[in-house]
Design a protein around this nucleic acid. Structure first.
Lengths: 131, 131
DNA sequence: AGATTTATAAACCAACTGGTTGACAATTCC
DNA sequence: GGAATTGTCAACCAGTTGGTTTATAAATCT
């Protein structure tokens, strides 16, 4: 456990992960990675009312993932990806874990080869695995 | 926009990101990356009742991040990190975005150097970048 | 057998989410 | 000036979250 528990208490990560936990908001982020867009454009493809979409954008804003710039009657939104990096960094802290299964496979393979080499005697060719 | 909107509609990602959006649950995951632990051990450092901690573990389970194995009266929990990889992959899709600021800086730097080299004549030194 | 440990279940609660509709304000188009 | 576009706000609502407490079940210890 390299990181202390206190590092998991991060209101920022709370907000970012929560923001990512809704498909509509992920869709908005995706589309913003292309180009700046106003609320009407962002809400158009979503199957919900305009105010609902507007709320989702606000959630993204509060998570620091979206910045808005008002120009006339339009609110132009652009992506701010740096909080996404924080989220990515947090999850990457577990990379060893999800790669571990390869280690296990390698171990198993090594074990099988080991047994094959010492092969000739019939008994104990395949015992119940390591444990 | 390389990925379609439909790819953002993923109940699995919904559950994983939602699971990560609470500090207690992130703390649990962290501690499980060390070793298998039962519910009492997991709940001990959390400032909440045992049933509350138990509920958090269940949320992690439903997100596929934790597997439990009952042994006597203890429920031993272990981490299953593969859904974390999915989350990491999703966020990594924005890596270009949060690295873009460096590109901009590099461009700016290049432009400044350009101007310094060609010194005397000011115009048409660099058109607007690639795109 | 009785006490302790480990965990679930149920009832309850306040707060928040995610959606709706309707009214309104400001900007831009004709 | 009047109409259309863009967006906010407020009220409302059903469902979920995140926590509590109390009661209960099952396994283990003495």
């Amino acid at each position: 456990m390299l990181n202390h528990m206190v590092l998991d208490r991060s209101p920022t990560l709370d907000r970012v992960f929560h923001a990512l936990a809704h498909p509509a908001r992920r869709s908005i982020l995706r589309r913003l990675s292309d180009k700046e867009q106003n609320l009407s454009e962002l809400s158009a493809p979503l199957k919900m009312s305009f105010p609902a979409a507007s709320k989702h954008v606000r959630v993204l804003e509060h998570a620091g993932l979206v910045r808005r710039r008002i120009q006339g009657r339009q609110h132009l939104c652009r992506l701010n990806a740096s909080p996404l990096k924080d989220a990515a960094d947090w999850t990457q802290g577990f990379r060893d874990q999800w790669e571990k299964r390869f280690e296990v496979l390698e171990e198993l393979l090594a074990e099988m080869q080991q047994k094959e080499e010492t092969g000739t005697q019939a008994k104990s060719v395949r015992g119940p695995a390591s444990k």
